[in-house]
C-alpha cells in the first residue's frame, strides 16, 4: 500500500476546515513533494466549495481556484499533489461521485466529520484500472513550525 505523509500543520488546517464548514462539505488543495514515490504533504490550502445546491452532499472546486493552485505550486517549487474534502456524517470512503471525475496521480484525502468533529481521515489514489486504492496516512507530528 502506498503511503502519504501528512505534516501536522496540514492536517490541522484540513480538520479545522472540516469542522468549520460542517454540516457542509469542505474542500481544498494539497501541496508538497513526491520523490520516487515518497509523498509528503506540507501544505493544505482551503478553497470555497463552489457547488451550487446541497453542499452537505457535494463539493466542487471553481476553475479559477484550480488555476491559482497550479500557479502557487509552480511559484513555490511545490507539487500540487491532491485534493481534500469532507464527508459530513459519513465515512471517509470515496463515493461514485468522487470516482466519476477522479484523476490519476492525485491523492484524494477524505475526512469524516461527525457532529462537527473530525472522526477519521483516509486517503485514496486512482489506480491503472480506474478504481480507488487506499494509501496509508502517516501524520508527521514532528513537523510543527
Amino acid at each position: 500500500m502506498k503511503k502519504l505523509i501528512l505534516e501536522e500543520k496540514a492536517f490541522n488546517i484540513i480538520a479545522e476546515h472540516g469542522s468549520t464548514d460542517f454540516p457542509n462539505e469542505c474542500c481544498g488543495f494539497l501541496f508538497g513533494k513526491d520523490k520516487e514515490g515518497k509523498r509528503t504533504i506540507t501544505e493544505a490550502n482551503p478553497v470555497v466549495n463552489a457547488k451550487q445546491g446541497d453542499q452537505r452532499r457535494r463539493f466542487e472546486i471553481a476553475p479559477n481556484d484550480y488555476i491559482k493552485a497550479e500557479m502557487y505550486a509552480l511559484q513555490n517549487d511545490l507539487q500540487l499533489l491532491g485534493v481534500y474534502h469532507s464527508h459530513p456524517q459519513h465515512p471517509a470512503i470515496p463515493s461514485e461521485h468522487d470516482l466519476k471525475v477522479a484523476l490519476p496521480f492525485f491523492s484524494y484525502v477524505i475526512i469524516s466529520v461527525i457532529d462537527g468533529i473530525v472522526d477519521h481521515i483516509r486517503s485514496w489514489q486512482l489506480n491503472d484500472e480506474g478504481t480507488f486504492e487506499e494509501e496509508t496516512v502517516q501524520r508527521n507530528i514532528f513537523s510543527l513550525n
Partner: peptide, 15 residues
C-alpha cells in the same frame, strides 16, 4: 492558457 480538470465529488447517499 490553463487546462483545468473537473474537481468535484461528495457523499453517496442522502443525509
Amino acid at each position: 492558457v490553463s487546462l483545468i480538470p473537473a474537481i468535484a465529488g461528495g457523499v453517496s447517499v442522502s443525509l
